[in-house]
C-alpha cells in the first residue's frame, strides 16, 4: 500500500514536471497565434475584469502604504530636489529663448508646424489604467485595462506625463501587457537633447531604477544632467518602435570605460513604481520593420 502511494506520488511529480517543461518549450517556440497563446489570452481576458475590480478596490490600501513609503523617502530627497529645481529654472529660461527662435525660423521657412512636432498628430492616445504588476524585478512589466478592442496593438509606444514608459508586448481584447523601459528585454534608441549624439538605453536585469546608455563612444561629450529623448529614427527598411522626441531620462553618471565605449547611467523620468495611468499611442505612421 505504502509503495503504491510512493509510486503514485512520484508519477504525479514527474508528470507535472514534464507538463511544465512541455508548456514552457511549446509556448516559447510557437507563434503569437499558436494555441497556447490563444488559451493564455483567453484566461487573461476572463480574469482582467476581476483584476480591474480588485485593483480599484485595493487602491486605498495601496495609497496608504505608498504614503508611508513616500514620506520616508521624501525626507532625503528634499535638499536634492531644491538643487535640481535651480538647475531646471536655468534650463527653462534657455529653452524658452530657443523655442522663440525656433518659431521664428519655422515661420521664415514656411514649414508646417504639425509635421515637425515631436508627436505626430496621427497618433491616437488611449488613456489606460494599470491593473496588474509583475512581482519580480527581473520582469518589469505591468498590465493595463485597454486591449485590441480599443485599437491597441503589439509594439505600440506607451507614455506618461513625465515621459516614456515602454511598449506593448502582448494584447488581449480587453487588456494589454506593457514592457517597461526598465525591463532588460527592452532597448530604446535615444538622442542627447537637443541635438546631441545618439545611442541605445537598456536596463540591467533586476535594476528598476537606472538605465545604461550603450554604444556610446568615448569621444562623445556628455554631461551629467543632460536629458535624453527618443531618437525615433527610420532608414526606410527598419525603424524605432518609439516616436521621436519623447522624454526618456536624465544622465546621472558618466565614466570612461576601458574600451572604446563610455559608461553612461541614466535615471528614467517616469517613476515606474508609482505608475497608475498612462497613454498608449495607437495608430500613427507606418513603421517599417516594426508594423506588419
Amino acid at each position: 500500500m505504502y509503495r503504491k502511494q510512493v509510486r503514485r506520488r512520484r508519477a504525479v511529480l514527474v508528470g507535472l514536471i514534464v507538463g511544465s517543461l512541455v508548456l514552457l518549450s511549446a509556448h516559447f517556440s510557437e507563434a503569437r497565434s499558436g494555441p497556447l497563446h490563444v488559451i493564455q489570452r483567453g484566461v487573461a481576458t476572463v480574469l482582467s475584469p476581476l483584476e480591474a475590480v480588485a485593483s480599484q478596490a485595493l487602491k486605498p490600501a495601496r495609497d496608504v502604504i505608498d504614503w508611508f513609503d513616500e514620506t520616508w523617502g521624501a525626507r532625503g530627497e528634499n535638499d536634492e530636489l531644491r538643487g535640481e529645481l535651480a538647475d531646471v529654472r536655468e534650463q527653462l529660461a534657455e529653452a524658452q529663448v530657443a523655442m522663440g527662435e525656433n518659431e521664428e525660423f519655422r515661420e521664415l521657412l514656411g514649414l508646417d508646424k504639425d509635421e515637425l512636432a515631436g508627436f505626430d498628430p496621427a497618433f491616437e492616445p488611449v488613456t489606460t489604467r494599470v491593473i496588474t504588476r509583475s512581482p519580480s524585478l527581473v520582469n518589469a512589466s505591468v498590465g493595463v485595462d485597454a486591449g485590441s478592442a480599443d485599437g491597441v496593438e503589439v509594439d505600440d509606444a506607451v507614455v506618461a506625463p513625465d515621459g516614456l514608459v515602454g511598449r506593448v508586448a502582448e494584447v488581449t481584447s480587453t487588456s494589454a501587457q506593457v514592457q517597461l523601459i526598465t525591463d532588460h528585454r527592452n532597448g530604446v534608441s535615444v538622442q542627447v537633447a537637443p541635438q546631441g549624439p545618439q545611442g541605445i538605453v537598456s536596463a540591467q536585469a533586476g535594476n528598476p531604477e537606472d538605465l545604461q546608455l550603450e554604444f556610446f563612444s568615448n569621444d562623445e561629450e556628455v554631461e551629467e544632467g543632460q536629458f535624453l529623448v527618443t531618437a525615433g529614427w527610420s532608414n526606410g527598411e527598419l525603424s524605432s518602435a518609439y516616436p521621436r522626441g519623447v522624454l526618456v531620462g536624465e544622465i546621472t553618471e558618466t565614466t570612461l570605460a576601458e574600451q572604446d565605449f563610455q559608461q553612461v547611467t541614466v535615471r528614467p523620468f517616469v517613476d515606474m513604481q508609482d505608475l497608475q495611468y498612462m497613454q498608449i499611442l495607437t495608430g500613427g505612421p507606418k513603421r517599417p520593420g516594426v508594423d506588419p
Binding site: V12, L13, L16, I17, G19, S20, L21, V22, L23, L24, S25, A26, H27, F28, L36, I39, Q40, R41, V43, A44, L47, E51, T132, S134, N139, S141, G143, A169, E170, T172, Q177
Partner: peptide, 24 residues
C-alpha cells in the same frame, strides 16, 4: 504539487508571461 502547477499556470496566464515557468 498539483495546486502549485495550477497556480503557476494561472499566474503566467494572467501576466501574459511564458507559460510553464511559474508552474515549474
Amino acid at each position: 504539487a498539483v495546486v502549485g502547477f495550477a497556480a503557476g499556470f494561472l499566474l503566467d496566464a494572467t501576466l501574459l508571461q511564458t507559460l510553464g515557468v511559474s508552474s515549474l
